[in-house]
Amino acid sequence: MNKNQSYEESGYLFNVDILVKSRSNALALQAMIEMLNDSENIADFRIKSGMELGQLIEAMLQDKRKSLIKPGASAASLPNGQAKPKAISQSDKSPSSPAEIKQSSSQLYEWITDCIRDNRLTRLTANRGGQPTSMPCRILNFDENNQLLNVYHVDEKQVYSFKLSEIIEVV
């Protein structure tokens, strides 16, 4: 037996279910990610399930798709010719007519859903405490009822929640 054995650190993979108490799924997700990021022993993690986020967006998109399939829909109302918005800003959030509001919010939800699905890196500019803050981030989810957008700051490795009214621009 060799008494001069060297001890190397190895990585071990565990599949666990974690129950986090919180007011909403988004806040529970934020708390869990912060907890995992604060631990020095956790090298990496992947959240495979449990995010009950985006269900309202999916329902809205399905309703929109169903309305586009109806025989009375004109070619002008189809979004196929429209480009997805590259930037969502405050000016995009304040259209004048109700029809423009519905179309603008529909495009916003579709764009947010695409960002979440593609895990797209975006730059978010928000007004926090009177100071404009710009951050490279990935959108984790959008809570339509509370108008909250949860993002993961890729440099700081932290999760932030913003109300839509705080967001100046997302590119």
Rank of each mutant, 00 (worst) to 15 (best):
S91I: 07
N80M: 12
I88H: 02
S91H: 12
S96T: 09
P98W: 00
S97D: 00
Q82Y: 10
A99P: 01
L61A: 13
K93Q: 06
P98M: 03
N80E: 13
Q62L: 14
K84S: 05
L68S: 07
K93L: 13
S94D: 04
I69F: 04
S77R: 12
Q103W: 06
P85S: 06
P85K: 11
I88K: 01
A73M: 14
K84W: 06
N80C: 10
G81L: 14
I88F: 06
Q90D: 06
P71K: 07
P85Y: 04
S104L: 01
K64Y: 11
A73N: 10
E100F: 04
S97C: 01
K66F: 06
K64D: 11
S97H: 01
S67T: 15
A76W: 04
Q90F: 05
K102C: 00
E100M: 06
K70T: 11
R65K: 12
Q103A: 15
D63E: 15
S67K: 15
P71E: 03
S104C: 05
S67F: 10
L68H: 15
S104T: 08
K64N: 11
K93V: 02
P71I: 02
K86G: 14
I101W: 05
K102V: 05
K84T: 11
P79F: 11
D63S: 12
I88C: 02
A87R: 13
A87L: 07
E100K: 05
I88R: 03
A83I: 08
K84E: 10
R65P: 00
L61C: 12
A87S: 15
K102E: 10
P79S: 13
P71V: 05
I88Y: 02
S105F: 02
S67D: 14
I101S: 04
P95L: 01
S97F: 00
R65A: 05
G81H: 14
D92K: 04
P95A: 02
K70D: 14
S94A: 08
S74F: 01
A99R: 07
S74M: 10
A87P: 01
A73Y: 08
S96N: 06
A76S: 07
Q90M: 12
N80P: 00
L78Q: 11
K93N: 07
D63F: 09
K86T: 13
R65C: 00
A87W: 05
S97E: 02
A73V: 14
S104D: 05
I101Q: 07
Q90C: 09
A75R: 12
Q82L: 13
I69E: 05
E100W: 03
D92R: 03
S105C: 00
S104M: 03
I88W: 04
Q62V: 09
P95W: 01
K102W: 02
G81Q: 12
G72M: 08
S105E: 10
K86S: 13
K84H: 06
D63L: 10
S91G: 02
S74Q: 09
Q82N: 11
D63G: 08
K86E: 12
